[in-house]
């Protein structure tokens, strides 16, 4: 089985988010970048397929040279090859079309992407990619087994989960649950050394249009002062929730 894992290069979850150039650009100064957490859960599941079922695992990112350390980390975790599509990740459809080209050229059976990236939260690349290449698609994937060309997928739904059956080629939108937090791997020294020697191929992007553009950013208004309520006067809290906040 040939697996492709899509890796988004995103600000670490502790990052303070700021904007530059008149609030039109995300300010990367001082920001640490990591593998998008949803993608990391997916990559970790791919490692399981590699070790238990002899799958090969490639990782791909659409972005400039600055994303290479993130791809190297994915190699250190255990991926075999990395591909970087050398073009900025402009919008969801644009990225999906770049990935579609890589997916078709590589003839992958299974493509694992994250449910959404934690920067722009678009939540659209996996589904668009699947539709573009005519593969089956399951989103919010919290469980995945493959036997031959048949896949059993568990999808999180609002208030529960469901089990689905489908066939390869398949794209899933992964999230925590596809593996547990404790399954995540911190690359060891050997992995890091090996990653330096593994192939990281840079390919040029394909011609593709965009559908949307983020023209401006804004930070939320700072919160007003909190009202503290005496633990011995909880009637006051009930009263405020009813009469002031009007939520009960």
């Amino acid at each position: 089985m040939k697996i492709l894992v899509c890796i988004s290069h995103v600000p670490d979850t502790t990052s303070k988010i700021n904007f530059s150039e008149g609030d039109t650009k995300f300010d990367t100064a001082g920001v640490q970048f990591v593998i998008n957490p949803n993608d990391e859960f997916g990559l970790t599941r791919a490692m399981w397929f590699k070790e238990k079922q002899g799958a090969s695992v490639d990782v791909v990112n659409v972005g400039g040279a600055e994303t290479e350390p993130t791809l190297r980390k994915a190699l250190a975790i255990g991926a075999d090859n990395a591909i970087r599509v050398n073009t900025p990740a402009t919008d969801g459809i644009y990225v999906a079309k770049q990935l579609a080209k890589v997916a078709q050229d590589g003839g992958y059976d299974l493509i694992i992407a994250g449910r959404e990236s934690i920067d722009y939260n678009g939540g659209m690349v996996p589904g668009m990619l699947a539709e573009l290449i005519g593969a089956n698609f399951v989103n919010t994937c919290i469980g995945l087994e493959v036997e031959g060309t048949e896949a059993t997928v568990i999808r999180e739904i609002d208030g529960g989960k469901e089990t689905l059956k489908t066939s390869l080629p398949l794209v899933v939108g992964a999230q925590k649950g596809i593996v547990q937090e404790s399954d995540l791997r911190i690359p060891n020294m050997r992995g890091i050394m090996q990653a330096r020697k593994k192939p990281l191929n840079v390919v040029e992007g394909v011609e593709a249009g965009t559908h949307s553009k983020a023209v401006k950013f804004e930070k939320p208004q700072p919160k007003g002062d909190i009202k503290l309520i005496d633990p011995d006067n909880l009637d006051e809290l009930v009263n405020l929730l009813h009469n002031e906040a009007k939520v009960i």
Partner: peptide, 16 residues
């Protein structure tokens, strides 16, 4: 729309 998991808003135009 919200972006950066509620740490910011993004004003997005669509051209389609």
């Amino acid at each position: 729309r919200t972006a950066f998991t509620n740490k910011a808003f993004s004003f997005t135009t669509m051209s389609t």
